[in-house]
Simulated scan of single mutants.
Amino acid sequence: MNVRRAQAAEAQHIVDFQIDMARETEDVTLDRNIITPGVQAVFDDESKGWYFVAEVDGKIAGSLMITFEWSDWRNSMILWIQSVFVAKEFRGRGVYKALYKHIQQIVSESNDYAGIRLYVDKTNTNALQVYEKLGMDSQHYGMCEWIKP
């Protein structure tokens, strides 16, 4: 398995993953006309985030996006994992684990980053088990949000 930063030429693949993820996890149909430029914006402006992909036998098996949160408490960035998706045919084969370990290594080897966070739906027990198995703590913070209608 090879984990690496995604390339702009792979944007459409990530768009397809995001459409599949929204449908599968939240029964939401994303508008391709909105998500396509949304994904492209990340490739056009690295301050918005970075995409990573995991390849198995040359095929993209999964992806995630990293965004940034400044922590004044730690005087460094927290990397947020978002938009996680592993294609069905590759699930249970350690694809997310490889992506996570790659991000964890980036954080461990840099003084610029303090840690890793992610959002997870409380009802997504499979994802919670995976994240906790990798040593992430889901007990410390809750999350509140307001998204304009």
Score class of each variant (00 low, 15 high):
Leu128Ser: 13
Ile19Gly: 11
Lys97Pro: 00
Tyr131Ile: 09
Glu26Cys: 10
Ala41Ser: 15
Gln129Asp: 13
Pro37Asp: 08
Leu79Glu: 07
Asp57Lys: 04
Leu30Thr: 01
Asn33Pro: 00
Ile147Val: 12
Asn124Gly: 03
Val42Tyr: 13
Glu26Pro: 05
Asp27Arg: 12
Phe43His: 07
Asp16Ser: 08
Glu109Asn: 13
Ile60Thr: 15
His13Met: 15
Gln139Arg: 09
Phe43Arg: 06
Glu26Asn: 04
Ser83Thr: 06
Thr36Tyr: 08
Ala9Gly: 04
Asn75Ser: 15
Phe17Ser: 05
Val95Ser: 15
Ser108Asp: 14
Asp121Lys: 02
Phe68Arg: 01
Arg32Phe: 06
Gln12Pro: 00
Ala114Gly: 12
Thr25Tyr: 09
Asp45Cys: 11
Ser71Pro: 01
Gln129Asn: 11
Val3Met: 09
Ser63Phe: 00
Leu128His: 05
Lys101Gln: 13
Gln104Asp: 15
Arg23Met: 14
Arg32Cys: 07
Val84Gln: 06
Trp80Met: 03
Asp112Thr: 12
Lys122Ile: 04
Asp45Gly: 10
Phe17Pro: 02
Asn33His: 14
Ile106Gln: 14
Arg91Glu: 12
Ala8Glu: 14
Ala61Cys: 08
Ser71Asp: 01
Glu26Ala: 12
Asp31Phe: 00
Tyr113Ile: 05
Asp27Met: 07
Val28Thr: 06
Lys101Cys: 11
Met136Lys: 05
Ile19Phe: 05
Asn2Gln: 14
Asn111Thr: 10
Ile34Ala: 14
Gly135Met: 10
Thr67Lys: 13
Met143Asp: 03
Val15His: 04
Thr36Ala: 15
Phe85Cys: 12
Tyr113Val: 02
Phe43Glu: 09
Asp44Glu: 13
Asp45Lys: 09
Pro37Ala: 09
Val42Arg: 11
Tyr113Asp: 04
Val39Arg: 12
Phe68Ser: 05
Arg23Ile: 04
Ser71Lys: 07
Met21Tyr: 08
Lys148Ala: 14
Gln7Asn: 11
Ala9His: 06
Asp137Met: 09
Asn2Glu: 15
Tyr100Leu: 03
Met143Val: 11
Gln12Val: 02
Cys144Thr: 07
Phe52Asp: 01
Pro37Glu: 15
Ser138Ile: 00
Lys59Thr: 02
Lys48Met: 13
Glu46Asp: 13
Gln40Asp: 13
Ser71Val: 01
Arg93Leu: 12
Ile106Met: 13
Val84Arg: 11
Ala9Met: 04
Ala114Val: 02
Asp31Trp: 05
Trp73Leu: 04
Ala6Gln: 02
Val120Ser: 11
Lys97Val: 02
Asp112Pro: 03
Ser76Arg: 11
Glu109His: 09
Ser71Thr: 01
Trp70Ser: 03
Ile66Leu: 15
Leu30Asp: 02
Gln104Asn: 14
Met65Thr: 00
Tyr113Arg: 05
Ile103Phe: 07
Ser76Ala: 15
Thr123Val: 08
Asp121Phe: 07
Val53Gln: 05
Asn33Arg: 06
Gln18Thr: 04
Tyr96Lys: 02
Ile14Pro: 05
Leu99Pro: 08
Thr25Asn: 09
Asp112Met: 15
Ala87Thr: 00
Asp137Gly: 05
Thr125Met: 08
Asp137Thr: 01
Tyr100Glu: 06
Lys88Asp: 14
Ala41Met: 08
Gly62Lys: 04
Leu99Met: 14
Met136Asn: 11
Gly62Pro: 03
Tyr96Ile: 01
